[in-house]
């Protein structure tokens, strides 16, 4: 049995009854709410087993407790294989680290930039700036788009907040949960997979202490996810760390890159092999001679 104390007076106890059958007991004030559920079952089922009267008081604590336990209770939608982070939850629930009470505002530098972006669009259509502004907010907010970021962008662009939520949930590049300092995205789409991305992914995960895709390392330095094609197929396999592509990877070069990042350095982006960008690794087969200069083949009077 494990027990964790979560926010103000709520306690959660976890019993492991069988291999995967777990029972959670939440304790709040004088109420004991015990609920049994399978690891990986629906939050709504858990919810159903909870007494109606206790729901509202326990709402936020319960959510938090589930996260604190590190167990997977799917909040939304079936999660196939390894989900991309932004698809994990399509419904916001208040948590201590992500709720509308946490204030967010652009810093002066970003505000100037935001105004410049907004000025690209007709005044009545400034809602068109929602994606760049969310991106700006995400960058300022340690790489993830909290509910406060979305609300702030909505306020800035005079949009109903729901219209911003729609955009932020539609695009997987907006992380709606906190991420580590370095956001590692490993491409596992077909071309990369054929070039050995499975090895790269496994190397990355084991090198970072055996985490799973979608998880963050304990020191908070790395978050790893699997992503679909990033458009660098000619340099497969590849991974993305923050804004930079690291291509032509081998397990060794992958480890090197990760080590560099964990030391706080930033290795040179691009192909990690000897070749230039995506030129033929076996040497050039075309354009081997000197290209002719201007006027070279023209009649003399034009030379």
């Amino acid at each position: 049995m494990t027990s964790k104390s979560v926010q103000n007076g709520f306690h959660i106890f976890q019993f492991v009854n069988a291999e995967s059958l777990q029972s959670y007991r939440l304790q709040a004030d004088h109420n004991d709410i015990e609920t049994t559920c399978l690891h990986g079952s629906w939050l709504s089922d858990v919810w159903k087993n909870t007494a109606t009267t206790a729901r509202s008081t326990l709402s936020s604590a319960f959510n938090y407790a589930i996260q604190a336990l590190g167990c997977t209770i799917h909040c939304e939608g079936l999660i196939y294989g390894s989900p991309s982070r932004s698809l994990m939850t399509l419904q916001h629930r208040d948590t201590p680290y992500n709720n509308p009470q946490i204030e967010f505002k652009f810093n002066p530098e970003n505000l100037t930039r935001a105004k410049e972006i907004i000025s690209h669009y007709p005044t009545q259509y400034k809602k068109a700036a929602v994606i760049p502004l969310l991106d700006l907010g995400q960058r300022q907010n340690k790489g993830w788009t909290s509910i406060s970021v979305m609300n702030y962008v909505a306020e800035l662009l005079e949009m109903p907040p729901m219209r911003v939520y729609e955009v932020a949930t539609f695009y997987t590049m907006f992380n709606r949960e906190p991420i580590g300092t370095n956001f590692v995205q490993v491409c596992t789409t077909t071309p990369c997979m054929l070039r050995g991305s499975t090895d790269i992914l496994n190397t990355t995960l084991s090198h970072l202490g055996g985490i799973k895709p979608g998880e963050t390392t304990k020191d908070g330095k790395f978050t790893v996810i699997e992503v679909e094609c990033q458009g660098a197929c000619s340099n497969a396999p590849m991974l993305v760390v923050n804004d930079d592509f690291y291509e032509d990877l081998t397990p060794e070069s992958t480890k090197k890159i990760l080590d560099a990042f964990s030391r706080g350095e930033k290795p040179k982006p691009g192909p990690q092999s000897s070749r230039q960008t995506s030129e033929n690794s076996a040497g050039l087969t075309a354009l081997t001679s000197k290209p002719y200069g201007p006027g070279e083949h023209c009649s003399p009077e034009f030379q």
Partner: peptide, 9 residues
């Protein structure tokens, strides 16, 4: 041409 009255979804 004027301020939008609805943000279409």
């Amino acid at each position: 041409p004027n301020k939008l009255r609805i943000m279409k979804t």
